[in-house]
Design a binder for these strands. Structure first.
Length: 255
DNA sequence: TGAGTCAACCGGATTA
DNA sequence: TAATCCGGTTGACTCA
């Protein structure tokens, strides 16, 4: 990998001997995944990020977002350490189940210790990590194909995007939540429209009833034709959708 | 400066 | 029992 050699970053120091996140060195095991990775690479994903030994992404992204990325120097108190600090003590333990290597966890633990020291000195305000457009694009594409990931897919995505598997997992969880929220909003709008239509229908029918009642009172009917119209004493219950003499359910809905 | 966005976290439920 | 999902929440960040 050429980019490993050409990489310039100060985070190398905090990554110990490797200089690269261990998960970056995890190679795919079967052809299917290999092809998947190649596909992603062909889409020219994260050329920049891939050459940044950035365990937490934040470092690379900070540089990317910096007005002068070439001369960008990570600030220990704000960018480097604080980005890493988004992985809290408790979650570093939780993340072990995500298949991260022990080496990564060691590095993380070390980083967390550094954060603790830093924050105890009152310099720490953790920095929010944001995915790059390219990363988001690939994740979105992947989400379109399948809104949940199996372990292989997750691993492949994480590797190709230089993200933790946990980050990919969290992104998909949040994405599903957003989708659901949007769908709920759509459903809600639809229901409101339905409700409005039913209300206006009900109003129109009530008006018709009143008109019919008025007609009946003005027309003098000979006694032999004086028939009681059921409409006067019956109505359609909107809740139970039945003709009732008087709705006894009180509008409480279906039972 | 408040509202909105989003990555990340937490705790509970479910499943293989 | 570990892994995963989900709903709710937090906190950093952006923008009008």
């Amino acid at each position: 990998m050429d980019h490993e050699v050409s990489c310039v970053t100060s985070l190398n120091l905090s990554l110990g001997d490797h200089g690269f996140p261990t998960n970056h060195l995890i190679y795919l095991h079967d052809e299917e995944q290999e092809q998947e990775q190649e596909q992603l690479e062909r889409k020219s994903i994260l050329k920049w990020d891939r050459c940044v030994p950035c365990l937490k992404l934040g470092l690379g992204r900070d540089q990317e977002r910096h007005p002068d990325p070439i001369n960008w120097i990570p600030q220990a108190s704000n960018s480097t350490v604080n980005t890493i600090s988004s992985f809290s003590k408790s979650t570093s333990i939780k993340r072990e189940r995500d298949g991260g290597s022990q080496e990564v966890e060691k590095v993380l633990s070390k980083a967390v210790i550094e954060i603790d020291q830093d924050e105890s000195e009152g310099r720490g305000a953790r920095k929010k990590l944001r995915l790059t457009n390219e990363q988001t694009l690939v994740l979105e594409e992947s989400f379109k194909q399948h809104d949940t990931l199996n372990r292989k897919q997750k691993q492949a995505l994480a590797t190709s995007l230089v993200l933790q598997q946990r980050q990919v997992e969290v992104w998909f969880q949040n994405r599903r939540a957003r989708t659901k929220l949007k769908q709920n909003e759509v459903d809600c709008t639809l229901l409101k429209k339905c409700c409005e239509a039913l209300k206006s229908d009900n109003k129109r029918l009530e008006k018709e009833i009143q008109e019919l009642k008025a007609i009946r009172t003005t027309i003098s009917v000979p006694p032999q034709f004086n028939i009681q119209f059921p409409a006067a004493s019956h109505s359609m219950c909107l809740s139970c959708e039945k003709i009732v003499s008087r709705c006894v359910s009180g509008g409480g809905g279906r039972r």
